[in-house]
Write a protein that binds this DNA or RNA. Structure first.
Lengths: 228, 228
DNA sequence: TATACCATAGTGGTATACCAATAAATCCAC
DNA sequence: GTGGATTTATTGGTATACCACTATGGTATA
């Protein structure tokens, strides 16, 4: 485990290791295993697992626990959820967000423009959607977006494999925000929906094409191809 | 506590007592209090509180716990979330649900028609929206609806105080489902959005008018009137 | 009388021992 | 050697003891 900072509690450390794929999807985890690995007792280990379960990062496997496999049907469902809540958030934002708030987010986005660093780009791309939703002022919409982005975080780096893909995503973010700034709800929501769908399709295609590499290696890293 | 069935675990019993308002909104609860009241140890009591926290039924108050107050601004935000996810679920359902599934839900709704019993009506009304969302086949949309209905459950009985209100709600449910059956997405989503908004407005109006009854009695039962 | 201090009781946080269930491994009979 | 029964190790579930912290109420002093 490379996350060993003393300032992070057990939950935060396990979560970071899941999101960084050091704890592999499908891998079995035990409460006593976390206890010894992270140097705490079972009580915080159990609390961490229960919390991570609500975030969809771990799940029950019989009586035990596993790191949630990456599930292609879940990814498609998350895209549908995101389209619903993010477009709703945009419509509310256009009626509610102040010019200053929009301007502030624009500056934040532009400060991230030369995001040719991959890891930085993953973070910035995920944060943008949450911050865009924040303009709506609706905590449930914000939480829904944040939750979806968490569940997608382990695959999101696949969306930004190339500098071209990163630039394309940044441009789409900028265009959405520009339409919000102009208070054009229809244009903003359409752009956002297309952005989510397009990104999702490219991600699914990549996962399906790569899936056979993992197939039968003993770990169920990528699940449920279904009828893609 | 009137919920003492041996078949329910501590989490289920505490949850039932919260939803039935036997544990009052704003009331302070302690882990050792639950331990003695429900005859279990602190470990399941803590687990229950953590789970109920993610459902929004309890929340932290400093280092302690309180039963979540009924928050009017939250109720409005939940209506916005519901409009987004329930209309999205309907659009997906129209493309995906089988005639048989829709017929099955119609029969279920019609079997509840003479729902002049108040408690039964609360249950049926909440279940309908979840079951309607089920037609979408998207587990995240379903879960979002279920979660919203849970958070609203303590106030939902206020929406069905009179037989007329219950009949009105039932009729609106039936009309939405009829438009789904006819695969008319625009009509179904419009009716659903209006149903959610109308129900919500009547609920908020009632809560605001009743709020002063609770004001200053030592318990913060209803919070955050804001700019209604 | 008012205020500052201190003792105390009660809180959540943690560590750990014990339990029942289960799955794996081993051993014995055939 | 093989199959079945039995033992054993390991799991999550639970109860509980201990800790640090905090809020509260009483008391002593200015």
């Amino acid at each position: 485990m490379d996350v060993t900072s003393q300032t992070l509690n057990l939950y935060q450390r396990v979560r970071a290791d899941i999101l960084s794929l050091e704890l592999m999807p499908g891998e079995r985890v035990t409460e006593r295993g976390l206890e010894s690995i992270f140097g705490a007792s079972r009580t915080p280990a159990r609390a961490a697992l229960m919390r991570l379960e609500t975030e969809g990062l771990v799940q029950r496997d019989g009586r035990g626990w596993i790191i949630s496999p990456i599930d292609i049907s879940e990814i498609r469902a998350l895209a549908e959820l995101r389209e619903a809540v993010e477009t709703a958030a945009i419509r509310l934002s256009i009626g509610r967000a102040s010019d200053a708030d929009i301007e502030s987010l624009t500056e934040l986005l532009e400060s991230d423009h030369p995001a040719f660093d991959e890891e930085e780009s993953v973070r910035a791309g995920g944060d943008f959607h949450v911050e865009l939703a924040q303009l709506s002022g609706n905590k449930f919409l914000i939480e829904a977006v944040r939750n979806a982005m968490t569940r997608l975080e382990r695959t999101r780096w696949l969306e930004v494999r190339t500098p071209e893909a990163r630039e394309k995503a940044w441009q789409e973010h900028w265009q959405i925000l520009e339409m919000v700034r102009l208070r054009n709800a229809d244009a903003a929501t359409t752009l956002c929906a297309e952005h989510i769908k397009g990104t999702n399709e490219r991600l699914i295609d990549f996962l399906v094409s790569q899936r056979r590499r993992f197939k039968g290696n003993g770990l169920s890293i990528i699940n449920n191809v279904e009828t893609i």
